[in-house]
Amino acid sequence: MIDRGMARVGRGGLPSVIALAACLLAGAAAPMVPADPPPRGFDLQARLEDLDPARPIEYLELAEEIAEGLATGESADRVLARRLYGLAGRLDPDRLAASAALGLASLATDARTKERYRAAASLLDPESVRSVTADRPEVDAETALEIGEAFGDFRSGRTIGLRRALQDPARERLIQGWDHALPGGIEWLRRQTEAGGRQRPVVDRTDALAMIRVELALLDRGRPQWSTLLALEGDPPIVDLRVDRVPSLLLDDAAASRPRHRGGAWVE
């Protein structure tokens, strides 16, 4: 549309300019829709029609193909991929349920849902998942001490240690893991360190306490005191799944009873 508008402008005239402006405005006013997914290398409808409950692996493979390269955010493809994973897990629970759960976890749009699916995968096949929860990178004692000293120096107005730490990818990643707990987040720390000078940054007691807690979490290396733990991580409940409810988690019973795709709809 813009190309056409530009062509008119090229032939000149106020109407062309107006048309161009209208195109631009129309383009600006158009609702934001996800861009069309890149063209697939296969015929989706044909693949869906070919699905057979006697061959559950095909459901899983098609789901993986659709999920590959999916844009963020909800989309029809994402919904379809979820259904296909769920059907695979329900049709062959012994062999495919854990993989289906992991596939569904990859499609989850929030951490909690992701954790539930990974928990389901772990329940079905403990070897399939090393750890369900999002792990922080492990920290060695020397690095923990170095970062702690950098924080202390920062509070005293010596920012060079922290600046160097943030310039190191591994250390930056470590500090990034505590972004939610640091006053102003890692970006504020970065700005303060880059500001230079020997002026002591303004860190009140609350901020100092938050930073000190992060130091303790690093120094305790996975065995923090509970006061530190509760302050930094909160007290989220464990995701506890029951084995008998995992199938319905993968796909509800109603959808699971319609594994065939005919004429654009799912049927029994």
Partner: peptide, 13 residues
């Protein structure tokens, strides 16, 4: 039990 352990990333859980 093993599955639940994998769900637990901190001492409380």
């Amino acid at each position: 039990r093993l599955a639940r352990r994998r769900l637990a990333s901190d001492p409380i859980r």
